[in-house]
Design a protein around this nucleic acid. Structure first.
Lengths: 215, 215
DNA sequence: GTCTATATCACGATAGAC
DNA sequence: GTCTATCGTGATATAGAC
């Protein structure tokens, strides 16, 4: 099903290939798979429709190649980051601020997530590719980071990592992808602070006695 | 844009209307908006295509009516629940177990979420309808519950509620909607327990002294 | 390799009989 | 109100010139 055999279509001009993929990205991200036409993709790429079919077997092959390319791109965004030194609280805060900020400024990322989820019924293998190359590496990295800092109070780092990632992704989902910013307004700092406080303990623990942590 | 004026189309037979909506649900949930055809919807409903057009103005009107109906249905699932008495930990655990269990057994719910997200670019008003009638009430209820139990250690109940809901929704998203169960296996109890421990403190609080809440 | 032109078909929406 | 039949359009994919 199209996921294999993408590389075998690449030994062509590779100048037009990039243009076609760019046009396909613009259309697929905006209109979804079934809502995009090969005519408009060719027009957006600045080539004829026959050229598209000389570079990719059919619409499904083009779509699979695009998703694969975007998965590699978005995966690379995360791998290069090093988060320096500091306490667990500082480190976690830095990671979350960087992740949320990147997610908020990258409009394309939201459209990509929308596309993957929307087509996950028709293209389950591409959805799995997203999980394997994007979701899992992110959760794994955070899991190792939580496990490496024993001062954080969590007995299950893997489940905790998924909670953190899930909270951030869901925030992006409601705020941007589902256009809920006016209905459920919430500053991203509130999410970040609440997450850090949950995992590292409340910040201003005035009385370390039995009281609690109300402001 | 179709969201209004749905009721005005209802004073018809209302026998066929239900059949059409059922057929539309089957098709739209499976193939998305652009991937569904009015011919197959009519066939799935057991009526002719002209009958569909006598009950709904066009494809967009039918889609909007279906989303509206499903939003009301799924909203009603949550409103009727009463969670009895008990400590904050017991209460939260009961709520999460009930919510996750309902989300896991209801295949239709996953397909509905996939559809809403996938079409949120083309139909932003329907996405907002989902946020307003499904997401917001759930978060609001959990927020009030967290705020009503001062023994839970959270200074921002609203942000905390969104973290909890986000973790659960993201779990459903990865496991079922994106077919990642084999790639990132995780028992739902692990998520529930980790959430409860984060919010209510670790379970075995042997010494309630200055130590904090390490396990 | 890339184009224009075309084959073939399914789509949304409607007309008109009953 | 519901059906059959159909109109016009735009879809995927290909043929053949250059």
């Amino acid at each position: 099903m199209g996921i294999q055999g993408v590389r075998s279509q690449r030994q062509l001009s590779s100048e037009k290939t990039a243009a076609i993929l760019a046009g396909a990205m613009q259309q697929f991200l905006r209109y979804g798979y079934a809502g995009s036409s090969m005519d408009r993709i060719a027009a957006a790429a600045g080539v004829s429709k026959a050229t598209v079919y000389s570079h990719f077997r059919d619409k499904e092959g083009l779509f699979a190649a695009l998703i694969q390319q975007m998965a590699v791109e978005k995966m690379a965004l995360m791998d290069r980051e090093h988060f320096g030194e500091g306490s667990a609280r500082e480190l976690l805060q830095r990671i979350l601020a960087q992740g949320v900020g990147q997610l908020e400024e990258d409009d394309e990322y939201g459209a990509f997530i929308r596309l993957i989820i929307g087509e996950s019924g028709r293209f389950p293998q591409l959805a799995r590719l997203f999980v394997e190359n994007i979701s899992k590496p992110g959760v794994d990295r955070l899991t190792q980071l939580l496990a490496a800092h024993p001062q954080v109070q969590c007995s299950d780092p893997e489940a905790t990592a998924r909670i953190v990632i899930g909270a951030v992704v869901h925030y992006k989902l409601i705020q941007d992808i589902l256009h809920g910013r006016d209905i459920m307004p919430l500053e991203s700092d509130r999410i970040i602070q609440a997450l850090v406080n949950l995992i590292c303990g409340a910040p201003a623990q005035v009385w370390p006695s039995a009281g609690g942590s109300r402001s």
